[in-house]
Amino acid sequence: MRDDDPNQNEKVDERSGVSRRDFLKISSISVAVPLVTGPKVVFAAGEQVPVHGPGKVPMEFTINGKKHKADLEPRVTLLDALRDEFDLTGAKRVCDRAECGACTVLMDNKAVYACSVLAIEAQGRQIATVESLMQGDKLHPVQQAFVDNDASQCGFCTPGFVVACKAFLDKHPNPTPEDIRRGLSGNLCRCGTYHGIQLAIAQLAQKGA
């Protein structure tokens, strides 16, 4: 739901000379411009800056080692592009604002919240989703540890957690319990599977996965 507060401050950003309200007006006229446009260049903050959109622009991604192309509006997130354009639905949309981690994917081997990365900014990066972790029919050791320790219930947070755990263990192969608590606090679960996840990580840490 949107709250159209008529008293909203018309705060002017002096650098761009565009108020938040004007920006919203610009983005809402997207339908009036051609569907696909190239970038236009404007002078802002003392630099030449390419401006994309607001209509659809061609984009190209490297996802799970494969090239993908799509025409998307610049406001589309990486998460929505993965889910709606490429049918990679392992990453879930839950909070849609970087609070819960259900959309976690790897970007250049670093765990990111795909809901808070614009698709247009993910171009030229190596994107890896949960779908890339299995080797043929064989589960990744992190996935197998989740299965063994019953670390999923409804399973909606699970793909994000699995990716976050993989990224965490890559960085901390021998984590202390304190490392685990801190390192995996960026993902939330409603069914309460943290106990199983802690056991899964402990199992992997012992094996040195």
Partner: peptide, 11 residues
């Protein structure tokens, strides 16, 4: 072991 774990952990 839960039978639908593999499809859940693999997305």
């Amino acid at each position: 072991t839960r039978v639908d774990s593999p499809v859940k952990v693999s997305g």
